[in-house]
């Protein structure tokens, strides 16, 4: 279970996140919603140790993460599919997936996890020997998700999986996330600008504006919320 409390973070002297608090239960899908520059990716970076929080606490299964480095946080089971995918474009698909096995345990389980990843995304097996940079955007996103799954996440963070992708591919990827949450008890933190899609997949959600959480609720509450409708759904 993830519990973020009073998180402040920023770059250098510029503070971006103000007093961010939210929770995420096992097997739950929680959406973090917000428009361009709201601070969503900054929040992901602070939770995954790629950015040291200025203050606040990030506790995962009752362990404090805020002081740990990204590798230690990865080891405790928080794995992200980063914004923009961040693949190794000149490596093959298979090599990219191998890079996802970051410790002894995941290296030992690699073949099993690879088989599972290929079941989720059969396209990737056909493309295993191809350089990742030559894949289509949707296929690259699949590689990024598969690479994260190879790392055996307990908490999977998806940072804007919809970015630049066709709607049906986004649905596929969200479908995989839902199934993982339901069947394997993996928690999913879904960071999105596409609020309609995100709320269709999520159990609950939080809305970030200017680095602050301004709204929270269940998916249906947020869908019905006047502010959300006006500001984000254009209704």
């Amino acid at each position: 279970m993830l519990k973020v409390e009073g998180l402040h973070a920023g770059y250098g002297s510029v503070n971006i996140l103000w007093d961010i608090s939210f929770t995420l239960e096992d097997g739950e899908i929680v959406a973090i919603l917000g428009s361009n520059g709201a601070g969503k990716t900054t929040m992901v970076r602070a939770v995954t140790g790629m950015l040291k929080p200025a203050s606040g606490s990030v506790s995962f299964n009752n362990e404090e993460m805020a002081k740990k480095n990204s590798r230690m946080i990865l080891n405790s089971g928080i794995v992200q599919v980063p914004e923009g995918r961040q693949l190794f474009t000149e490596m093959t698909v298979l090599e990219n997936l191998q890079m996802g096995a970051f410790n002894k345990e995941t290296k030992i389980h690699f073949q099993d996890n690879l088989k599972k990843a290929y079941q989720w995304f059969p396209k990737l097996e056909e493309r295993a020997k191809q350089a990742a940079g030559t894949l289509s955007g949707g296929e690259q996103q699949m590689v990024a998700v598969a690479r994260a799954l190879i790392g055996e996440p307990k908490l999977l963070i998806l940072d804007e999986p919809s970015l630049g992708l066709a709607p049906n591919i986004v649905d596929d990827i969200l479908q995989v996330a839902s199934t993982l949450a339901k069947n394997d008890g993996i928690s999913v933190l879904l960071v999105e600008q596409d609020i309609t899609k995100a709320l269709a997949a999520a159990d609950r959600g939080y809305v970030i504006e200017n680095g602050r959480i301004v709204l929270e609720g269940t998916a249906s509450e947020l869908q019905a919320n006047e502010h959300v409708k006006k500001a984000y759904l254009g209704i």
Partner: peptide
């Protein structure tokens, strides 16, 4: 060797997969 190539191709991606 793979980690060296990974860092040179994508330093952010390298950090994402826990490369020091």
């Amino acid at each position: 060797g793979k980690q060296i190539r990974a860092v040179s191709q994508n330093p952010v991606g390298a950090e994402v997969v826990g490369i020091d």
